[in-house]
Nucleic acid binder design. Structure first.
Lengths: 216, 216
DNA sequence: TGTACATCAGTGAACGCGCGTTCACTGATGTAC
DNA sequence: TGTACATCAGTGAACGCGCGTTCACTGATGTAC
């Protein structure tokens, strides 16, 4: 038996990562199999020994983010510790960060590909749902009790994070995009109970200043 | 001069409407010019006497919704009166309604096409921005003063409406999608100051019941 | 250690297809008389 | 009212191109001796 045991697994991983980068940048339909395989250092012909079809790749790519234990590497430099009690505000800040806004290639697929998924197979939608539920679940566990249902708040917070990023990337004016991210971040932090209301009213607290200075 | 004066304007409108329906359903890239022209009752060859290129159509299609005085027709059966003082909650309810969720063809392009736009030309992004700003502006004017900046709240509310719909359409489970819309609607109404907080805590008010009965 | 070999990962030519775009032409139209 | 006509909206064949997918083949690999 030629080739080491883990060879195919390793190559398949390279193909998925190449596809993830290209899909994030150009969408499902504007990426050819030849491009994906070239990104993995291969030629197009070998693709079908790894996947039944192009659309089968969609599901695989969606699953490799957020639910993947290595997802943190996608946001290098942004600290998110899933074990921390502070994970809620950390996720919100990382998700709506300038870094995530700019790094389209390593973006969360919920930001880069949601409408592509809504036009895709039930398999892709299920994979998307899993990623979204994982995010809601993290936010829910971390949110502060305030009399309103935690789950509903967590769902709205997640939708706000995704929506804020999707819209910020679709508008032309960069200043407005930044303003939108900040507005969504502020409201999202309040929803989870991680933000002092007084800070939102005047924006003069230390934390607000720090956030602005860091250009988060 | 053969053909009446308004003939070309009328036909151009038909092409744009056909494109809007097809783009909403399949995205920019999965719709051919032949399909668009067929939807307007024409053949593909005539397209280039109306538009310089396919991508020029994107801008035109984005502009025809929301900023268009006739946009209301897109949500038949959902009452939204832009002159009303109550326009904020009306827009939120209509936007996150089941009807809007289901009627992909006549959907707001911000829900159906945001990632397509983020990969498109600056022209398309500017058109998207105009639509989004129009929505923010309506929400801002209608929102209730509560000590926090109205504009930031309006921006977050709009992002929440768009994000909630985008995610709801991308997940498989219909019940979860409904749950998500409701959660986003509830939070969005609170953000604008149009919702009694007490109603959110137990969901037993008349209004909550009416909303549920109407399956909004 | 060196060599011959079976395996199978990867190659690239070929397929049918539909796309965006162009253009010479057709024929429906309102006008002039 | 009826007819001949100039205009130009719309047609459809044709173009080059890149796509997803297939498949006969090549050659790199680890193993057996």
């Amino acid at each position: 038996m030629p080739y080491a045991a883990g060879h195919r697994t390793e190559i398949k991983g390279k193909i998925v990562q190449s596809a993830r980068r290209l899909f994030n940048r150009h969408g499902f339909d504007n990426v050819s199999i030849a491009q994906i395989m070239a990104g993995a250092g291969l030629t197009h012909g070998g693709f079908y020994s790894y996947f039944k079809s192009k659309s089968e790749l969609y599901t695989e790519v969606l699953g490799c983010f957020f639910t993947d234990p290595n997802w943190k590497s996608c946001w290098e430099g942004v600290e998110v510790d899933l074990a921390s009690a502070d994970v809620g505000p950390q996720v919100v800040r990382a998700y709506l960060s300038r870094q995530h806004f700019e790094d389209v290639e390593n973006s969360c697929p919920m930001v880069a590909l949601p409408t592509d998924v809504s036009r895709s197979s039930p398999h892709a939608k299920r994979a998307f749902e899993t990623v979204f539920e994982a995010m809601v679940s993290v936010l829910e566990r971390s949110s502060v009790e305030n009399g309103r249902p935690r789950r509903a708040r967590a769902q709205a917070t997640a939708a706000l994070c995704v929506g804020g990023m999707v819209v910020a990337r679709a508008i032309l004016n960069r200043v407005r995009a930044d303003e939108l991210r900040q507005a969504c971040m502020s409201v999202a932090l309040t929803l989870g109970g991680w933000h002092d209301e007084s800070k939102l009213q005047n924006g003069k607290s230390k934390r607000s200043h720090r956030l602005r200075a860091e250009k988060v």
